[in-house]
Design a binder for these strands. Sequence first.
DNA 1: TTGTAAGCGTTATCAC
DNA 2: GTGATAACGCTTACAA
Lengths: 319, 319
Amino acid sequence: MTNIRDLAQMAGVSVTTVSRVLNQHPYVSEEKRKAVLEAIKVSNYHKNINAVHLSKGKTQLMGVVIPFSDHSYFAMLLKGIAKQALEHNYKLVLFQTEYIESKEMEALQMLKQKQIDSLIICSRSCDISIIEEHLQFGPIVLCEDNPRSKISSTFVNHYKIFSDALDYLYQKGHRQIGYCIGRRSGTNSQNRELAYQHFHKKYRLPYNSDYIIDQCLYFEDGERVITRIKEMDTPPSALLVTSDQVAAGIVISCQNQQLSIPDDIAIIGFDNEPIAKMLNITTIEIPLVEMGGNLFQQALNRALTNREISVKLIERGTV
Amino acid sequence: MTNIRDLAQMAGVSVTTVSRVLNQHPYVSEEKRKAVLEAIKVSNYHKNINAVHLSKGKTQLMGVVIPFSDHSYFAMLLKGIAKQALEHNYKLVLFQTEYIESKEMEALQMLKQKQIDSLIICSRSCDISIIEEHLQFGPIVLCEDNPRSKISSTFVNHYKIFSDALDYLYQKGHRQIGYCIGRRSGTNSQNRELAYQHFHKKYRLPYNSDYIIDQCLYFEDGERVITRIKEMDTPPSALLVTSDQVAAGIVISCQNQQLSIPDDIAIIGFDNEPIAKMLNITTIEIPLVEMGGNLFQQALNRALTNREISVKLIERGTV
DNA sequence: TTGTAAGCGTTATCAC
DNA sequence: GTGATAACGCTTACAA
């Protein structure tokens, strides 16, 4: 492997001059530039980027933490991040954590060790205080509403969205409303649960924890939801489903099992994915790709910013 | 940022000893080890991994090229790769190319520049000769059947699979068979097209290029397929659909448009995703996660291996 | 416009 | 067991 010193020797110049040519800096005579370029060509030279990284203390690598790479919500966030990354000449290092805390720690570890310049955590498992401790090693951004934290974030107000959606269903006459969620433990999930509790208090409705169905991540989970609902003595008349994929699975399951939508059960999905349009599912549009782009921008800066993204109810045929 | 030299000074030992402790090498007295460990603790020291990379000439980073991160086929391959990566203490650098050649070139560039140790290309855009040229910089593996090439690969025999599936449909009485595909230009796609042509020759069936429908990637593309088929004077009686997602979209579309499956049109999907089971779709099971794992293994070695993975027809209700 | 030389933070070789 | 010291390949003051 030929290096910058070999090049300097071949071209009969100093390493500085070679470096200048390599990084298109000014103040190099055309003559020497050509000599260097020639040397590069004949030697089939390529920069060792690790040396650059060590020297500069930067890697142009950004870490992205997601629990599952085959889940549409995260895939869309990732799409937005990847697009911005490309434009800004950053590469992405992917951490697929499956919500295992130790895998998330590995990402933080890499930030500490300077292998990545900054970190986007799309869904967090480990404690917020641990994240904060790592802030000294580089920008970290989250995709959740964490007031009074020192961490930048892009988020939607899940409390408000859930409240509004529940109100909407209430206006439509629903009194027994359940919801489906991926996991119950995240910040976003907890905000939703809070909204759910407050809703029941506000309208003095009986609170039924059976109506909260978790582990709803993929299309096929919709089947389980319907099976479970059919077993209930007093099933909910409406369901908030925090993923259009799952909502779609529910709709299909209902077809298979002769349940009528929205008469037997009303459905509101989330995200407004194409599948929701196709199946005519009422949903709450969340601009995930845009959010991904915003997360990237925040990770690029050191500034502390918390940006709320607004959403839109798309009324279709499942309510 | 404290470094290994500071540590040596603090602990009153040499950098070598510190390095030994850091890398758990033998031949360090318990006494000095403790001193070093103590220094590490009080100084909040962390290795600069870039220096390690430079020194070792390796990064423990593996590149993965996929066209779309929100496509289930690639998401599953990625899942398998990520799992192995974790076990072998490798991190993944993701290149989302959208089939744009220049983005694939960036991945090759990083291999050249030693920022990644090896590269897995799940779906290739650029010429095979370009890949071969880059083989000198590190292992590159492909996910396609490229006989007589010097490139390692894990693949399924798309020619044979397609031939068998077409024969199967022929036995079931179908004479007008079409197929849906993502793009027509990849090696895998061309093998399938070849099988399709040979099938028609073998049974002396009229060949109708309208029966090949491309750009079929996502669930929602199923709708377009059905729209198109309904416009045909002599529509196919069966469809090979190279993705269960699209097959599922087709099945739903048929429901919406009062087409009966398999009477009006028979469907065979690919991959055996959960959605196929749920919608009772006959499909060809491809162990994508396992293939991903195998790709990783090959990328880890320098040996040239070409491994064919076998598949299985899962008979359900759409044929 | 050009070059010298001092980093960047490790690992590896070799002598003691 | 231990420690100098030379790589690794690049960037960047600073000097000329």
